[in-house]
Design a protein around this nucleic acid. Sequence first.
DNA 1: GGACTGACACTGG
DNA 2: ACCAGTGCCAGTC
Length: 104
Amino acid sequence: MSAFYDAVYRAVERIPRGKVATYGQIALLCGRPRASRAVGWALHQNPLPGIIPCHRVVNRKGGMAPAFAFGGPQVQRGLLEAEGVPFLPEGQVDLSRALWTPDF
DNA sequence: GGACTGACACTGG
DNA sequence: ACCAGTGCCAGTC
């Protein structure tokens, strides 16, 4: 387990309820603006399910991975909707309103 | 140590 | 605006 992993998990946990963040955002918080892929890797490992809300992490399109883990995209959508995240009829997150901005 | 892979992002046509 | 190609980073073989 590398420090980068910890940084990724820390960033993901920082995402407030009702908001979502893109892999790029997480990578930026980790100090690697171009490590979006590595972020996906870290989340794929997901050694701490339950404390790591991976469902709050989406790609820049607001969608999700084709092979999501905890039961399928439908489950993620349900979790996000339960948190108050606005969804588009296309089945994607409305990044215009739900994108988390690490202001402080 | 080198090469391939993977839940992405960006630029160019 | 959409499709294709390239770049990035960390992990695993």
